[in-house]
C-alpha cells in the first residue's frame, strides 16, 4: 500500500538544507490536503528506496532540484475536501511559490488521490 509517510526529517542529500521540510509544512497546511506522498513513486526510485533502507533516512516527500538558479519543486498530494481538487492543487502551487520568494521556482503538483 502507498501510505503517506511520516513527516520526513530533512534529508542531508537535499541541496538546500531545510527547504524541503519547510515546504512540506507549507503544503500540509493548505486546507484540503489530506496526505503528501513521496515525490517519486517507489518503483521509480528503487535505488533510492534501497539507500534509504540502509541509511535509515526517509525518502524526501517534497522533491527539489536546483537547475541554473531555478528551483524545481515536485509534490504529490492527496485531497480530501468538498472543495474542488483542482483549486486545492493551484493553492498548493501558489503557497510553494510564495514561500520561496524571491527565488524563482517551477512547481509541479500531482493530485494522486481524491476523496477519503
Amino acid at each position: 500500500m502507498t501510505e503517506p509517510l511520516e513527516a520526513a526529517e530533512p534529508s542531508a542529500s537535499t541541496p538546500p538544507t531545510g527547504v524541503a521540510e519547510e515546504l512540506l509544512d507549507v503544503v500540509q497546511s493548505v486546507p484540503g490536503v489530506s496526505a503528501v506522498y513521496p515525490a517519486q513513486p517507489l518503483w521509480q526510485s528503487i535505488a533510492g528506496a534501497a539507500l534509504s533502507a540502509v541509511t535509515g533516512e526517509p525518502l524526501p516527500l517534497i522533491g527539489l532540484t536546483d537547475t541554473a538558479g531555478t528551483l524545481a519543486v515536485k509534490a504529490r498530494i492527496g485531497v480530501s475536501t468538498p472543495r474542488p481538487a483542482p483549486a486545492v492543487a493551484r493553492e498548493v502551487a501558489d503557497a510553494i511559490r510564495r514561500h520561496l520568494l524571491p527565488r524563482a521556482a517551477a512547481v509541479e503538483v500531482s493530485v494522486v488521490k481524491v476523496g477519503s
Binding site: A89, V107, V109
Partner: peptide, 25 residues
Amino acid sequence: LRLELRPGRSIPLQSVHPDDTLWET
C-alpha cells in the same frame, strides 16, 4: 506487498502561474 497505486495517464489542470504544472492522475 506495498502495492503501488497505478497512476495511469496524467490529466493536466489549469495553472495560474506559467511555470506551474498541475496534474491529476
